[in-house]
Simulated scan of single mutants.
Amino acid sequence: MKAPPFRYHRPSTIAEAVELLATLDNARAIAGGQSLMPMMNFRLVTPDDLIDLGGIEELVGLTEGKSALSIGAMTTQRRLERSEIVARQCPLITAALRHVGHQQTRNRGTIGGSLCHLDPGAELPVAAAALDAVLIAVGRSGERLIPFAEFSVGLLSNALSPGELLARIELPKAAPRTGVAFVEFNRRPADFAVVSVAASLALDAAGRIAQAAIAVGGSFEAPVRLGAFETACAGRRPEPALFDVASREAEAIECVGDDVYPAEYRRELAGVLVRRALDSALVDVETHADA
């Protein structure tokens, strides 16, 4: 099938795009188009007006601050994947991007498009959840900061208000002695994940856990953080028995299922992948500490 007729707009500034979104009744913004165009072709969404954000230069790029990276929402996934700054300062994003589709997909797909689409099987929302990313939305009234934990309002639905667009994403820099891992299970390489896990593990000088972050994706409408384990593990040594606790917490999270992958299967898989992710993150810490 092909998309139904629509009017095409290509603004050159954020202000122009916001004005279009605010004044057109049935408009959608398009970023990389990797998700929206197939949905339009299948008539799952039928906008009367399509607002192409590809001509807005101020939505593209990466700025390194003292404690965070600021990434324009229209920055492509491939550019971030190849960025030395991202690999050094926010390696969990680099690790997640290695699992996103094919290279051709990442050439067009954008970080903002993926986060706004919020597919449960997508990798970047899981990494953003683990990193406590902050999203900066822009509307007629100015900027609004949205913690990523508050960004999902349901399946494939985000907290942007009518007339708002995502302008940039703020990601904290990794602390010293931090290891990361991103693992997932899918039917075929480049498929959306059945379950995915993003993990970050920071150790203090004594080798104890200073901070841990674990997010599970694919199990529910939005990524789920293992908050109880993250709090309880602080000050503990990263030992197998402790990681087993995280695995059991993952096996108890709320899951949705289908005829192919029932909820019980996804919960068990979440437990397995959380253990693998923590083991890999610990190895990553030790590798960088020895470098």
Results as ranks from 00 to 15, higher is better:
residue 24 L to E: 05
residue 131 L to F: 13
residue 168 R to Y: 10
residue 24 L to N: 06
residue 205 A to L: 06
residue 27 A to R: 03
residue 285 V to C: 06
residue 129 A to W: 03
residue 291 A to C: 13
residue 34 Q to A: 03
residue 256 V to G: 12
residue 55 G to C: 08
residue 226 L to P: 02
residue 284 D to Q: 10
residue 205 A to Q: 11
residue 127 A to D: 02
residue 99 H to T: 04
residue 94 T to V: 12
residue 106 R to F: 01
residue 225 R to V: 00
residue 219 S to K: 01
residue 207 G to L: 05
residue 223 P to M: 00
residue 139 G to I: 13
residue 65 G to Y: 11
residue 115 L to T: 04
residue 186 N to Q: 15
residue 182 F to Q: 03
residue 147 P to Q: 09
residue 201 L to G: 09
residue 260 V to K: 15
residue 214 I to A: 03
residue 17 A to Q: 07
residue 280 S to Q: 09
residue 36 L to W: 00
residue 20 L to F: 15
residue 58 E to I: 11
residue 221 E to Q: 08
residue 291 A to L: 12
residue 115 L to S: 05
residue 204 D to F: 09
residue 110 T to M: 01
residue 216 V to T: 00
residue 41 N to K: 08
residue 189 P to H: 12
residue 75 T to Y: 03
residue 59 L to M: 11
residue 123 E to Y: 15
residue 216 V to S: 01
residue 10 R to F: 15
residue 82 R to C: 15
residue 268 E to R: 08
residue 282 L to M: 05
residue 123 E to P: 10
residue 97 L to G: 02
residue 52 D to C: 14
residue 255 C to N: 11
residue 82 R to V: 15
residue 107 N to E: 02
residue 208 R to W: 13
residue 109 G to K: 00
residue 163 G to T: 12
residue 185 F to M: 09
residue 199 A to T: 07
residue 262 P to Y: 14
residue 46 T to Y: 10
residue 226 L to S: 03
residue 290 D to V: 15
residue 53 L to G: 05
residue 200 S to K: 09
residue 241 A to E: 12
residue 169 I to T: 13
residue 119 D to E: 09
residue 199 A to R: 00
residue 115 L to G: 06
residue 187 R to L: 15
residue 180 V to N: 04
residue 83 S to E: 01
residue 50 L to A: 06
residue 45 V to G: 09
residue 182 F to S: 01
residue 85 I to L: 12
residue 22 A to C: 14
residue 18 V to N: 02
residue 42 F to Q: 11
residue 153 V to C: 11
residue 7 R to H: 14
residue 211 Q to A: 14
residue 232 A to Y: 10
residue 240 P to K: 11
residue 92 L to S: 06
residue 229 F to G: 00
residue 75 T to A: 07
residue 278 L to A: 04
residue 278 L to N: 04
residue 133 A to Y: 05
residue 111 I to R: 00
residue 132 D to L: 08
residue 99 H to M: 06
residue 157 S to C: 08
residue 62 L to V: 12
residue 146 I to K: 02
residue 140 R to N: 14
residue 17 A to P: 02
residue 138 V to N: 05
residue 26 N to A: 14
residue 207 G to D: 07
residue 265 Y to G: 08
residue 160 L to T: 09
residue 206 A to W: 12
residue 176 P to Q: 13
residue 119 D to I: 06
residue 237 R to Y: 12
residue 134 V to M: 14
residue 146 I to G: 00
residue 34 Q to L: 08
residue 201 L to Q: 04
residue 1 M to C: 13
residue 250 A to W: 03
residue 121 G to A: 06
residue 13 T to Y: 13
residue 77 Q to M: 03
residue 230 E to G: 05
residue 218 G to Y: 06
residue 82 R to K: 09
residue 177 R to Q: 13
residue 45 V to E: 02
residue 214 I to M: 06
residue 198 A to R: 01
residue 25 D to F: 12
residue 210 A to C: 10
residue 24 L to M: 07
residue 269 L to R: 03
residue 290 D to R: 13
residue 184 E to Q: 07
residue 100 V to A: 04
residue 170 E to L: 10
residue 7 R to K: 15
residue 160 L to Q: 03
residue 275 R to A: 09
residue 272 V to C: 12
residue 214 I to E: 02
residue 29 A to G: 07
residue 248 R to C: 13
residue 237 R to M: 11
residue 58 E to W: 10
residue 138 V to P: 00
residue 66 K to R: 07
residue 169 I to K: 00
residue 112 G to I: 00
residue 89 Q to K: 14
residue 36 L to T: 01
residue 149 A to K: 00
residue 25 D to I: 08
